[in-house]
Nucleic acid binder design. Structure first.
Lengths: 209, 209
DNA sequence: TCAATAGTGTCTGTTAGACATTATGGA
DNA sequence: TCCATAATGTCTAACAGACACTATTGA
């Protein structure tokens, strides 16, 4: 009987590069790239192991992470989705791979893991500050909306986005404005959630079926 | 160096007993109960292993299941949430434990696993037919609403629930009605999802922060 | 006839999305 | 001055929640 291979933590660490979602990869076998991985620790949490891995390859602990599922391929693999702010540099041989080049650069199970990671992030998008963690501490509302659009993979309505955002008391304006090329400068905001009032709305059946 | 213990699949199989959510348990150590578990298979999916376990203890494969997270306690444990229709009998020494008795009957990690399972089911509630899988093939709309209320842990508005449900084309009426004690008989429906038109609505920030 | 539950019609406040307009900088 | 982008006000259709009402059975 062969020994069972040690379970692995597979890291799908995402950021935004040139306005597109990208995932952290390392050189793999052949010309392929591969997601970074590490053995599941015998003590300590899976997220911490993923965080350590991310720190080694980007210089910083992810601003947010979530488990994205376990699967049995060649051994047991647990995928962790993580996000770091745009502008974070890849180091130690790692690189940022834009999502569009996913299928060309990764093996099938790597692609599946990244898709699971994106899906897990999408699921948490309205409960946890995922989009904010793709940004530096201060940001414009247009940047924030772009992050939401990247994660949701669809366009949002600007006025509605801002109305909902302000009504939710998730951001507060700073004193600073940023001029970006031509148009009117944008005000910088910071993430600053106030305690929500629990206005539970109805069930949604829209995506079911 | 000690051998790494084999990773386990932990099953949180839920149903409805006497109008309350209940989870499948087995006799554990001492007077405690414990969630059923099995080794993670070296081939085949984690969900299938959980399904096999559920079949052994309830006589049927779960109507729906989802992974609810992995954690490192004494070894690596992957929790799978599953649902079976109300009326399904526990067998082979297993029993249905009402959620209210959770803390008294299970160890802390078991309680945490069940909470993670319920949370995972709640997350999928508006995307997958979780509530329907807690019911037999035909059911009344009141029963369906009760399942949603159990999973969401809050009351829903009857008229709104039905309006949204009918608008989503998720159920179709059958020819049959069921008289339940006093009042007017209820029409029986079956789950019959029509292809949705993708009316993507805005982001929700309500639960964020 | 009464009680209890199923199922529906109507009203109203809220809000998402569309549209238009103002504001403010750079070219 | 023109253009591009930010930010905001107004209108409307859709919808959630409230309420009341009808329908249909058993006691």
């Amino acid at each position: 009987m062969s020994a069972r291979p040690a379970p692995l933590v597979l890291l799908a660490c995402c950021t935004v590069v040139d306005g597109a979602l990208a995932v952290l990869v390392q050189p793999g076998s052949g010309r392929r790239s591969a997601l970074p991985s590490a053995p599941v620790p015998t003590r300590g949490s899976i997220e911490d192991a993923a965080a350590e891995l991310a720190k080694r390859l980007t210089g910083r602990v992810p601003a947010w992470s979530v488990q994205a599922g376990a699967s049995v391929d060649a051994g047991l693999t647990i995928t962790v989705a993580a996000v770091v702010p745009s502008g974070t540099a890849a180091q130690a041989g790692a690189a940022w791979l834009p999502m569009e080049q996913l299928a060309a650069a990764l093996a099938a199970d790597g692609v599946a893991a990244v898709r699971a990671a994106v899906s897990a992030m999408q699921d948490r998008l309205d409960r946890e500050p995922v989009a904010f963690r793709l940004l530096p501490p201060t940001f414009t509302l247009t940047e924030l909306q772009e992050r939401y659009e990247l994660l949701l993979e669809r366009r949002l309505h600007k006025a509605s986005f801002r109305r909902a955002l302000l009504a939710a008391h998730l951001v507060e304006p700073t004193e600073h404005w940023r001029s970006e090329g031509r148009g009117r400068p944008a005000q910088l905001f910071r993430f600053s959630p106030r305690r929500r009032r629990g206005v539970q709305r109805s069930v949604r059946f829209e995506h079911l079926g």
